[in-house]
Design a protein around this nucleic acid. Structure first.
Lengths: 159, 159
DNA sequence: CATATATTTTGAATATTATTCTGAAACCAT
DNA sequence: ATGGTTTCAGAATAATATTCAAAATATATG
């Protein structure tokens, strides 16, 4: 699935930088900015998608607007066989769960969850987490305020 | 800055659902899918942007392709005055830092960081974190494998 | 409940962009 | 160098974005 050779050059990096900043920038604008023909940019973008360098385009929606005001991180200890992630996959199926990371140390997962409020969180823990076998314990951390939240990667300047 | 009334209807939700799934879906396609005129969709999308319901459009780039293979979470205890977040703002300035959350409990921050490898992480902790005054202690959690990583919100079905 | 006012939608016209394709240029490996 | 491959530019065409006026819808107010 994942290619071993991505082989990106300076121009690809510039395209990625633009796209990472605004995924709806059109080919014509990118072409103008890079001093190239639109057709060439189109080719490159398609190739970046095919090579799975660009994984997807998404709109970042304001959680407030959908009344999802509470962000929490939950550490979950599980009795999973290492590398199997049976619990992890079940956690991933919960819509309110945005991230599931298998972490080193305590046979556990770190899970990022967004709910309406604390009642929604309790609800989720009781219903969704409650139904999953293999969870030994949980420890929840409430986010008071988010100072920064992006998924932008550091893109190399040089080729 | 943030509006108190977003007042979204069923159609807005549908647009958000489409956009959240693929931010490069064009107006014509959305219009076709919702059985409306492209100009009406354009109006709504513009309004969603103005009302800061849609915050931005970004391309999700494969960290592997940029050789950023290590994901870590760092808990940082700081001697910040509550609500001030002096340390938090400094943390947010570090490019490798994707997220900074002010968390309840231990006067601390939860920070999400992407680096090349463990050497890059050590480097970041020594250089970038090392320069920040007010950091009392850190505890680092290494991610072995990410099972899920999205920022999709649960969008209501009904109006 | 009716009417005035504001908002949203449509549909057509125009501007802009996306996409395709061909030949030229650049690149690579031998 | 030379043959083969990849990338690019430029033009032609298809499709989409954008604008705008009028119609339709929703909202507010007396």
């Amino acid at each position: 699935m994942a290619k071993l050779e991505y082989n990106l050059d300076h121009i690809d990096y510039q395209i990625l930088r633009i796209m990472q900043d605004n995924a709806r920038t059109n080919n014509a604008d990118i072409a103008r900015e890079l001093g190239m023909a639109p057709s060439a940019i189109l080719e490159r973008v398609k190739k970046l998608e095919q090579k799975e360098v660009i994984l997807q385009y998404n709109a970042k929606i304001n959680p407030q607007a959908l009344d999802q005001k509470l962000l929490s991180f939950i550490f979950i200890k599980a009795q999973d066989i290492i590398g199997e992630q049976k619990v992890g996959l079940l956690l991933a199926e919960i819509p309110e769960v945005q991230e599931v990371h298998d972490i080193a140390g305590d046979d556990g997962y770190l899970v990022k969850v967004r709910t309406n409020d604390s009642a929604g969180l309790v609800d989720l823990m009781r219903n969704s987490l409650g139904r999953i076998d293999g969870i030994i314990s949980t420890r929840t951390t409430i986010v008071l305020e988010t100072v920064k939240e992006e998924q932008k990667l550091v893109i190399p300047t040089q080729k």
